[in-house]
Amino acid sequence: MISLRRITKRSEPYVLAAIILLSLLIQVRSGQFFSGNNLVDLARSLIVPALFSVGCMMVIVSGGIDVSFPAIASLAMYVTDKLLLASNYSGNVILAYAISAGLGLLMGALNGFLIGFLRLPTLVVTLGTSSLYTGLMFGAFSASASDVPPSIAKHGKEILFTATNPTMGLTSNMPSQILILIAVLILAFFLLRYTMLGRGIYAIGGDETAAERAGFNVRGIKMFLYCFVGVLAGITGIARISMMSYADPSTMLGMEMTVIAAVVLGGTRVTGGMGTLTGTILGVALMTILSNSLILIGIPTYWTRVFTGAVIIIGTGVTAHQTISTRRRRAQSQKAAA
């Protein structure tokens, strides 16, 4: 009884219901949604936003907001790409991931320093560093679409399995990068739930002063958090270009808004302290289905943004409504108790 009440208060079930309804609608109208290749295509386009969303969710839980991760991912992958091309490296792709993650770490550390140590407002800081990093990429490195080194190209061709749609004769490949997403999810789950560091992120989002008094190293945790987001962004960058098999510096820019929207849609509280990985992934899935599958029911692609916008507005509206009505209910129950 009590646990049922707790479940209906969460937003994951609503997002899941929306996904199911939308899927069924598309399935009924087109008959193509539950085909193997469509599902694999969806999983494929989910990988990059989902990787981003993990870090983004953690930042929002800590009470901050980060809009710089696409810029970090782009600059990190681009520099790595150029570096490897210039040195004619043809070894393992692990090195590419390592370099890009390292660059991401450095860029994230700048965010962490400004936010954790100087206590500057997160939105403004990351807006600034975002502008800084994209500017460096296009300015100092005069970035433009470029080839990828053989190791990354080869990594991009590694596929887990191929799904074929018998009626349309279309095939889709499940990229191996999905394994990275799974690994990151497991790591993040463990980190958030079973380490003091992870609990510290939630604690800071709940009450920063209380966290400090309790003995959490607030600066250190924030530093770690933004570094972690940087590392994740670096990895995401390489995953993205290996799947596209060329390095387009602007392919990820502008994703921050939809990723944040997906995270909030998934029930992460904008003011911090609450958020789950399950909700986040559901939120990303809903946004991905919207932008990928509407074409299946005959809605031209250039209308998809209208739907994304509508989903953000409706989704956040429902969440806002929920928080207000729980607050009211709580006030009433307190009154009853008094």
Partner: peptide, 11 residues
């Protein structure tokens, strides 16, 4: 024990 109790509301 401080006036604001220093508790974490979200936990």
């Amino acid at each position: 024990i401080y006036q604001d109790f220093s508790v974490f509301p979200n936990l």
